[in-house]
Amino acid sequence: MKRQIPMMILSTIGTIFVLAYFSPGLEELEKGGSIFFDVVACFAFFLGGSNLVRVHIQKIARHNPGWGYSIVTLFGFGLMLFIGLFKLGNPLGIAGAPTEPGSWFQIIFQYCVAPLSATMYSLLAFFVASASYRAFRAKNTEATILLVAAFIILLGRTQLGLVMTSWVPDWLSIAQIPNLAVFIMTSPNLAGQRAIMIGIALGVVSMSLRLILGIERSYLGSDS
């Protein structure tokens, strides 16, 4: 039963979704399934939140390296949860949305979470610069092609590319760097992306069929 019930649920729901996608008459059934899916997805928040707390409490208790950061994480998590749940400082009170303008939740998000998050992402620029100096080498033919393509795209994304090839006559406009960059994106890149997407789609179809037919059972756990 421990194995049969999850397999039955998966097969039934999977079949409904596949049929509903191609049969407009089954839209209501699909809608019900999707709402059920959304309700289940809500529990991921509880699971994710409780897991975060458990992992960081363990880290603090064991004094693992960097356990001080875990205190900051737990403090931030608890603070946002408390303020968000009880709508502290919310101009519309408990009935207002947590992100109501002027609410404490929105203020902390706007002035702490958003800048910190954007700062972390912006650090990428430093690592990209360092990698471009140390790792981006024309070691073989494939790497050289990649390097030349990257170079044209980088130039094409700036005014410099336009200035450098503005002298090129209109009948040879494909040779202008911004147009070359567009060509790379819409031809070789497109072909490569399509090939990857078709491959992934075929893989997803075959894996979905294996799941629906009960051939693939790894999701049931190792003891199954």
Binding site: A125, V128, A129, S132, Y133, R134, A135, F136, R137, A138, L147, A150, F151, L154, L155, R157, T158, L160
Partner: peptide, 13 residues
């Protein structure tokens, strides 16, 4: 930044 990255690629090579 793009100009600098391109310069780094050239110098690195």
């Amino acid at each position: 930044a793009h100009v600098v990255v391109m310069a780094f690629i050239i110098i690195g090579n």
